[in-house]
């Protein structure tokens, strides 16, 4: 019981760092990659917290669709934040 919770703890701490990096990063493409990583970490936590349905719904949206759309939009607009 304790080990999975510790994994959750580690993953969520990592996600704080990634969220902070996303907010300070000037290159939006790299920020998008961080967001996709947060998605992966959260997917892991969902899995540990016994929510397989949410995993299946969240994985394609957070790790594929949204980053893909943001990358397409960045390609059509501007990559760097001023």
């Amino acid at each position: 019981m304790l080990i999975p919770i510790v994994v959750v703890l580690v993953a969520s701490t990592l996600s704080i760092i990634l969220a902070y990096l996303t907010m300070v990063e000037k290159d939006l493409l790299i920020a998008t990659i961080y967001i996709a990583f947060i998605g992966v970490l959260y997917t892991l936590i969902y899995y540990i917290l016994m929510a397989p349905d949410v995993v299946l719904a969240y994985m394609p949206v957070s790790s594929i669709l949204l980053p893909l759309m943001i990358v397409i939009v960045l390609k059509k607009t501007k990559r760097f934040e001023e």
Partner: peptide, 14 residues
């Protein structure tokens, strides 16, 4: 089993 409409639909869309 785990799964359903959104899950399958978003996987196909992705």
């Amino acid at each position: 089993t785990p799964g359903g409409g959104f899950q399958a639909g978003s996987a196909i869309g992705a």
